[in-house]
Each structure stands twice: as structure tokens, then as C-alpha cells.
Amino acid sequence: MYGNAYIDPNEKANLILAEEDPQKLAEFEARIDRGEKIEPKDWMPKEYRKQLIRMIEQHAHSEIIGALPEGTWITRAPGFKRKLALMAKVQDEVGHAQLLYSAAETLGKSREAMINDLITGKSKYSNVFNYPAFTWADACVIAWLIDAGAIINQVANAKGSYGPYCRALDRICTEESFHLKYGHDNVVTLATGSSIQRDMVQGALIRWWPPIMHFFGPSDKISQHTEILMKWKVKMASNDDMRQQFLDMYVPKIWDLGLSIPDPLLKKNTATNKWEYTEPDWDEFKRVINGDGPCNAERLAVRRHAEEHGRWVREALNNVGSKYIVPLA
């Protein structure tokens, strides 16, 4: 899964462009206009490289951090069918991280450097994973609706301009569609189950609705400076467009299950054909993405623990050529 890359609105991309060779830049942009893919060895503006690394890296981090809230439910999944399916799903997510780190490495940043930036808090990951999965139903809602959001985002980005990222996304999207089915099946089972199960899933939906609305990133009104990224096909759809697409596809399905969404203003305006909703709390979004969410510290602590406790293994791997001989007593 994946959250929309967070773009700092204070950055001035255009300034950096002034340093680029205008002819090369024009050729580069013409290629993108023609729908060609940019490959690792091709010339690209510094800003293009930088934004792509940030975006793919954030995506990769989201996959491994995303494995944590769902992973805690693997050991609690009710019954063989669910346990096996959830293990396979989370395994896929870790596999996505692997694919994405490799794609980002083609731009010149090593996996190690990226993971290091993750655990020191320097680079971001999808905000949704800074919220806890309180019950089994939370894990089910995540698998359905967060993965649904991820698919919208990833299908759009798969048509982007950077070859290795697009190819990774094509593979990822195929697997995500299974996650979506798995999540939907779980939510349907709970929503049509016993009253305990219904309450559980309704509670989870109430908790997860605000993070889901945050998922596509700040409203276009407050998120400027993305024009150049859209022009270069780094970013393929605006945050609000993706949010609209999500609401269009999933709100009716949620309502069909008899679940209620905690937003009294949510409705489709038949005149504009757009969904209207309460504007998500973007201050909270910023607070959480900058480290102050309910689970930021815990998620990074787990990741840091894994890195630290696995260091001896990685060091040993680097050493395999030189076989250690046990000294004779």
C-alpha cells in the first residue's frame, strides 16, 4: 500500500531549474510529452531525480511500515483461512518495499541510506500508518480501504514517466488487487455477521475515516507547487481528483453494507457530479506527518529495533567470502 508522497509546500522547485542546460531540459520534456519512459542512464534534471527518489523512497517506507499495524494481527487472525491470507498479504507488502527500494536505487541512493533516513525520521512514509489498528476489524478496514486508496494512487503513477518505477508499480498493482478482494471479503463478513462483529467493523470505520480522507494528501487548494511534477509525469493526478475517485468508488459500497460514515456533510452533489465532505483536519495531518501522531514513535522504534538487532547478520553477510575458522582450543 502507499500514501501519496508528501510535498513540502515551501520548496521552490523552479529556482533549481534555472541551473539546468535549457536544450537538454527541452529534449527531456519533449520525450515525456511523447509518452516515452525515462530510464536510469538517461539525462534528467536534478529536481526530477530528487523528487522521484523522495517519492519512491516514501512509497517503499510506507510498505514496510504498513506491514507493522497489520502484522500485529497475523498472530491473532481468527481461523486458518484468514491467518494464511493475511500472512500472504503482508508478505506481499514487504515484497513491494523490496521492489521499490530497488527502483529508487537506480536513481543513485542505496537501500541502506534510505532505511537509515527512515529510522532517523528524516524521510516520511504514509501518514495512515501512524494510527493504531485497535481491533481485528481495523486490520480488515485497512486491507480494504487503505489498499483501495493505494490502488487509485498507484494505477495513476504507473502511467508516469520513470521506467523502473512504472514497471515496479505494474507488478505491485496486480498484487494489490488481491489485497482489495481480501479486505472487502473480510469487511463484508464482519458487516453481515453477528452484532459483535458489526459493532467491531463500524467502530473501525469511524476510527479510520479521517486517516483515509487524509490519505491522498492535502487539498489542491493548499498544496501548490506540484505543476512541474505533473508536467514531468512524476505526479499523475491531483490529490483532490484521487480523493473524488475514491469516494465515488467506495462510499456507495460502504453504505450498501449498512455501515455509516462519520461525516454528516458527505454527499454527492448531482449538479457538479462531485462529492462534498467536511474538509479533513489538515493541521492534524501536518502534525502527524511531522512526527506527532499516535504511533510515530512506536513505528520507528520497532523499525530501529529490527535494524539494530539485524546488524550482526548483515555484517556477517558482507563477510561470507572470508570464512571464519574457529581457533583451536
Binding site: A67, M87, Q91, V94, V302, H305, V313, R314
Partner: peptide, 22 residues
């Protein structure tokens, strides 16, 4: 899951876990 020393080992242990439980 999510805690292995390298991502590849996360994946190996998960896939073995799925076999065992199956």
C-alpha cells in the same frame, strides 16, 4: 514479519510460516 534482519529474510520466514500453517 516486519522485523527480519533483511527484507529478504522477512519474506522467507513468512513464506515458510504459510507453508507450515497450511
Amino acid at each position: 514479519t516486519g522485523l527480519g534482519p533483511i527484507l529478504e529474510e522477512d519474506i522467507s520466514f513468512s513464506s515458510m510460516a504459510q507453508d507450515k500453517i497450511g
